[in-house]
Design a protein around this nucleic acid. Structure first.
Length: 510
RNA sequence: GGGCCCGUAGCUCAACCUGGCAGAGCAGCGGACUUUUAAUCCGACGGUUCAGGGUUCGAAUCCCUGCGGGCCUACCA
């Protein structure tokens, strides 16, 4: 697009573009032209520097009597989001990144011409205002406008002032509008940032090294999921977006970095749902010399720290349930949890067909290829997980579904693995890491056999990772936390799309 | 991938079931008002009813297809 020129055949407002075509935007385009003709730059640079925020003003002048004058002259800047025009007097509402402050414009201060100019601003315009801090007769803290500057002209109307933007699709596609008009959207984004910051602080404080490992990988390992495929042109090599951080972080433990974590984006080529976005944020951490009991304590301590900082309270409301994060959290083996909820006692030593019969009696459809471990896990996921509302560590998972976890030190068929379940959903997954390279190779080969029979999510063999283990990895505890789900819990959001600023969506029609 | 539901003015919603001139509020426009708080009052304006097809004298409404979205389900964190 070329810039508008004075010798153009038509004015901007007559333009056949989308903005010119609609009356509401055409009016604003015309206003833009009038500003330029009058020597007012609608997009000035360096025009105004605010010296205070709305929140600071409210904090500084919390208890002023109605009708007060403070004598304090301030400069505030933000978006004009409301206006009440009373003739020779105009009230405006200015919104900055900290909140809102009322603007009080009256003729006896501004004069006729400038009051008219103030009245002529559109809702949505960015402005800077200089004036005295006062309270009105009704006691509303305000800036009495002595001077104002247009900082950026807004050409599109904002959604309805009371209901805001409700349409879910519009809120996600046009998140910038959602953030302007919906306080909840702003709060969620801010709380997410605080959660991420507190997670970092918690691991930093414990001496962990934050690292960054490849997103583009030759093999996508570390979890059981279908990857996104892309192609490196110069290498003429297909590559995968990572589905986990795990295998590279363990390589760093081999390398002698004793405590590492990564907080980053992982990608899984699976369906969208209120709890699944194809890219999501995972925090993984690994500690040399720790086992899964140590990691349980670590997870409990870290999450309690985050909850304390973010909520200031260990009780959280999630979708109508009250969650009590006060430690210690319940710890129960997977087999005990299944027995508690279903009344059926499974053992890994049981005959496979006997286990299948028990599961089918519970209404579980059992695939012929499943072993006892997979069958029990299915019962757990189908009937037990959703009942675990309060924070609960479920531990000792079957080896069959845990190809990267260490075999249990005393229980055959199990691994030293736990999941943290909150509000019926997995929030963290952790284990005593498998550091026996020969056992790891056998596990990979079993996965490979599953892949050969059509399981696209079976774990591929990563020869370089096996080589790293062959150099020797110390006993290590590792964990993964689903950050988006933690944010959902602490912001009481039912959908992952509410905690991801720009969730995945189909392209819109044009 | 399967099932159910939704799509009407810039925004929030009616009218759809039971086919008959598409209506409000907010925003915008014109006017009144020097203390409003979703300001108030008066006036005029604003529509590809998601798109395409079908049924019908007549379709926002009923049917079909497509597009987009939501929820459930499946996979998963």
């Amino acid at each position: 697009m070329s810039e508008a020129t004075t010798d153009g055949p038509e004015t901007l407002a007559d333009d056949a573009s989308e903005l010119g075509a609609h009356p509401l935007t055409a009016q604003r385009l015309a206003k833009l032209e009038r500003y330029r003709a009058a020597g007012i730059e609608p997009y000035p640079v360096g025009a105004f520097a605010p010296d205070v925020t709305a929140a600071e003003l409210h904090a500084d002048h919390a208890d002023l009597e109605p009708g007060s004058s403070t004598g304090r002259v301030v400069r505030v800047a933000g978006r004009l989001v409301g206006r009440r025009d009373i003739g020779k007097l105009v009230f405006g509402v200015l919104q900055d990144e900290t909140g809102r402050i009322q603007l009080f414009a009256q003729r006896q201060i501004l004069g006729d011409e400038d009051l008219e100019g103030f009245r002529d601003l559109d809702i949505g315009d960015w402005i800077g205002v200089e004036g005295e801090v006062i309270t009105t007769k009704r006691g509303e803290l305000s800036v009495a406008v002595a001077r104002f500057v247009l900082l950026a002209k807004s050409l599109r109307p904002l959604p309805e002032k009371w209901h805001g933007l409700q349409d879910v699709e519009e809120r996600h596609r046009r998140r910038y509008v959602d953030l302007i008009v919906n306080e909840r959207a702003r709060d969620t984004a801010i709380v997410r940032s605080r959660i991420v910051r507190e997670l970092r602080r918690a691991f930093d404080r414990r001496g962990f090294l934050e690292v960054e490992t490849p997103v583009l990988q030759i093999e996508a390992g570390g979890a059981l999921a279908r990857p996104f495929v892309t192609h490196h042109n110069a290498l003429d090599q297909d590559m995968y977006l990572r589905i986990a951080e795990e295998l590279h972080l363990k390589r760093l433990i081999v390398g002698g970095l004793g405590k590492v974590y990564e907080l980053g984006r992982v990608f899984r080529n699976e369906g969208l749902s209120p709890r699944h976005n194809p890219e999501f944020t995972m925090l993984e951490a690994y500690v040399a010399y720790a086992d899964y009991h140590d990691v349980m304590n670590l997870v409990e301590n870290v999450i309690v720290e985050v909850v304390d900082e973010v909520l200031g309270d260990r009780l959280a409301t999630y979708q109508g349930d009250t969650l009590d994060f006060a430690p210690p959290w319940r710890r129960v083996t997977m087999l005990d949890a299944v027995a508690d909820v279903t009344g059926v006692r499974f053992e890994l030593s049981m005959d496979r067909d006997a286990a299948a019969d028990l599961a089918e009696d519970l209404g579980i459809a059992v695939d012929p290829s499943w072993g006892v471990g997979k069958i029990v896990n299915e019962v757990f996921e189908e009937q037990v997980e959703r009942t675990l509302v309060q924070p609960t560590f479920v531990y000792d998972y079957p080896v069959e579904i845990s190809p990267l976890a260490r075999a249990h030190r005393s229980e055959p068929g199990l691994t030293e693995r736990f999941e943290l379940i909150v509000a019926g959903r997995e929030l963290a997954n952790a284990f005593s890491e498998l550091n026996d390279p020969l056992d790891q190779r056998r596990r990979f080969e079993e996965q490979q056999a599953a892949r050969a029979t059509g399981d696209e999510e079976a774990h591929p063999i990563d020869e370089d990772f096996l080589r790293a283990l062959e150099y020797g990895m110390p006993p290590t505890g590792g964990l993964g936390i689903g950050v988006d789900r933690l944010v959902m819990l602490l912001t009481d959001q039912a959908s992952i799309r509410e905690v991801i600023l720009f969730p995945a969506m189909r392209p819109e029609r044009t």
